[in-house]
Computed example of a mutant assay.
Amino acid sequence: MTTLALAGLGWAMRAVWQIRLATAGEPASGLPDQGEGNHRPLTSLEDSYHLVSSASGFAAAVCAIAFLVWMGRVRHNGRELSGARPRYAGLWVYLGWVVPVVNFWFPRGIIADAYRSSAPGEPLPLSLNVWWGMWLISMLTGVGLTYADSTDEIIARAYTDVWQLLASDAAVIAAAVAGIFLVRAVTAVQERRMN
């Protein structure tokens, strides 16, 4: 849960810096990447955005590792509690995030399966669908956690289309918050069942 909170905080800091960039406006010297391999020196605000972006990226990477470990554990616990074979093979805990098309439902399915195995007959927690919906929105916008733009390109977008960046940041932050509630709900039901 701590890593989810740190990742959400990191993305909130990115949003703050993007707003600062948008309100400061593009410098008279133009964008950082001036094309044909030419880059101008960064302003102090742009340079600090690079630092914030790197720190939030690191927090997200640590969060991703911790979340994968947690997913593996709840899948295993669900199998132990129910005695039934999980719907998804263990390899999908990791591959389910990166294999195209299946990455739109396998991660959610793995957690839902673990919850159902741990608490038969109980409805899935609302946080599961909120978390997954926000994750998909951030993924599909192309500017969330999975964007392909460089930091300088993100800075350029902050000067012109900051609303797109902020919408995606909001989805990532909402996914992190819902993820905290999800981890608590699934972990609590498994601990209750084990006791």
Rank of each mutant, 00 (worst) to 15 (best):
T3W: 11
R75W: 10
S150A: 09
T146Q: 12
G179W: 01
G35K: 02
A60C: 08
A15D: 00
V186I: 14
N195M: 12
A185D: 15
N129I: 03
R157H: 10
I180Y: 07
S127R: 06
V74R: 04
T43G: 13
L21T: 10
T146M: 13
I137E: 00
S56W: 01
P123T: 11
L91V: 14
D161C: 04
R14L: 05
A175Y: 00
W17H: 05
A156P: 12
A188F: 01
W105M: 08
S54M: 11
V172F: 04
V183F: 05
T141C: 09
L6W: 14
S53M: 00
V183C: 04
A171S: 14
G83K: 12
E80W: 03
H39R: 13
L4C: 04
T187L: 10
A148D: 14
V74W: 04
L68D: 01
Y115R: 06
E191D: 12
M13Q: 09
G78W: 03
P100G: 12
A84N: 14
V99D: 08
I137L: 15
G96S: 04
A55M: 14
V102I: 15
M139C: 09
A171V: 10
T23L: 07
P32I: 02
W131F: 15
I65K: 07
V98G: 04
Y147H: 13
V93G: 01
V162F: 03
H76I: 01
H76N: 03
R192Y: 09
M1T: 09
A170V: 13
V130N: 00
W92H: 02
H39F: 15
G121D: 12
P107Q: 05
L68I: 11
E80D: 11
G25P: 12
G8N: 06
R108G: 02
E122V: 12
V98M: 08
T43F: 09
S56M: 03
G35T: 02
L124E: 15
L126D: 14
S44K: 13
F106E: 04
R192W: 10
G10F: 02
A15F: 00
V177A: 14
G144L: 08
Q190F: 08
H76E: 15
F58Y: 14
D113S: 01
V74A: 05
P107C: 07
W97V: 10
W132F: 15
Y94F: 14
G142Y: 07
L140W: 11
Q190T: 11
A158H: 01
A178P: 05
A148V: 13
W135R: 04
A7D: 03
S53D: 03
F67T: 09
H39W: 14
G179V: 07
V62Q: 00
T151L: 03
A175V: 06
A112L: 10
G72D: 08
S53I: 00
R193C: 13
